[in-house]
């Protein structure tokens, strides 16, 4: 068909309308989810953690975490008497298969760890390309298609929560199961925790039991001196935990 000037002029509005859809990008996966109505955090009740490793296994399965890398992991602390400054910490295979028995004297306990989803996170501040960010609902995420794999963020995280995925060569970390929480589900780790040691909480939801818990318990965050605004709260945490 010969494209006359008339044809071209007729085509223009249609092309403009189509271009609008192209520019709009991928539609939201959860249309009923309102970003501004949530502020996610997690509560970890250390006296309830039994070190079973369910959370680590579930996380790996839910998020396809490569073998030998962990988005969440469990540490076993061994604090000998008077050695609060020098705890012995171990995490064989991230605690995925549980922990071998240890009957040594002193204080032993488990500490589950994950991204703290800091409100003033150092990792997002160092990204040179805007590939990692704090979402409006308080989750620190990585835009895979934008990440260069420069590792700045891996170095910047004071909690060691990031790694470079050996397949994609981009930064990877806990997403707080963003694909689940935006659908009204809890995270995979919280779902399978058999003792309720991990609880997902929404600080912007006035009905969330977290508010009552925070009022009535002494909770701490990891490395508060780094002023990261960490949002993973630990209840019953020993002073030796780093």
């Amino acid at each position: 068909m010969e494209v006359t000037r008339r044809h071209l002029l007729l085509l223009l509005p249609a092309a403009a309308a189509a271009w609008k859809f192209v520019l709009a990008g991928t539609p939201e996966a959860s249309p009923n989810y309102k970003l501004a109505e949530h502020w996610w955090e997690m509560l970890i009740d250390i006296p309830k953690c039994i070190g079973c490793g369910s959370c680590v296994r579930a996380c790996a399965q839910e998020n396809d975490v490569p073998e030998g890398y962990y988005r969440t992991w469990i540490e076993r602390y061994h604090v000998a008497d008077y050695q609060i400054e020098r705890p012995e910490v171990e995490s064989p295979d991230g605690g995925k298969q549980g922990f071998p028995p240890d009957e040594s004297s002193g204080k032993n306990f488990f500490v589950p760890k994950l991204c703290n989803h800091c409100a003033d996170s150092p990792c997002t501040q160092v990204c040179p390309v805007g590939a990692t960010f704090i979402s409006p609902d308080g989750v620190v995420l990585v835009d895979k298609s934008y990440c260069l794999g420069c590792r700045y963020c891996v170095q910047a995280c004071p909690y060691g929560c990031r790694f470079i995925n050996p397949k994609t060569h981009t930064a990877e970390k806990c997403t707080l199961c963003y694909h689940r929480i935006t659908k009204g589900l809890t995270t995979a780790c919280c779902e399978v925790c058999p003792t309720g040691a991990r609880q997902l909480a929404d600080l912007k939801n006035p009905k969330d039991p977290i508010h009552e818990f925070l009022r009535t318990h002494s909770v701490q965050v990891l490395k508060p001196h780094m002023a990261t605004g960490a949002k993973v709260f630990y209840d019953g945490m020993d002073g030796s935990v780093r």
Partner: peptide, 10 residues
């Protein structure tokens, strides 16, 4: 950052 990234992750 790219706002659409959140939808892709979700």
């Amino acid at each position: 950052y790219r706002g659409a990234a959140m939808g892709e992750i979700a």
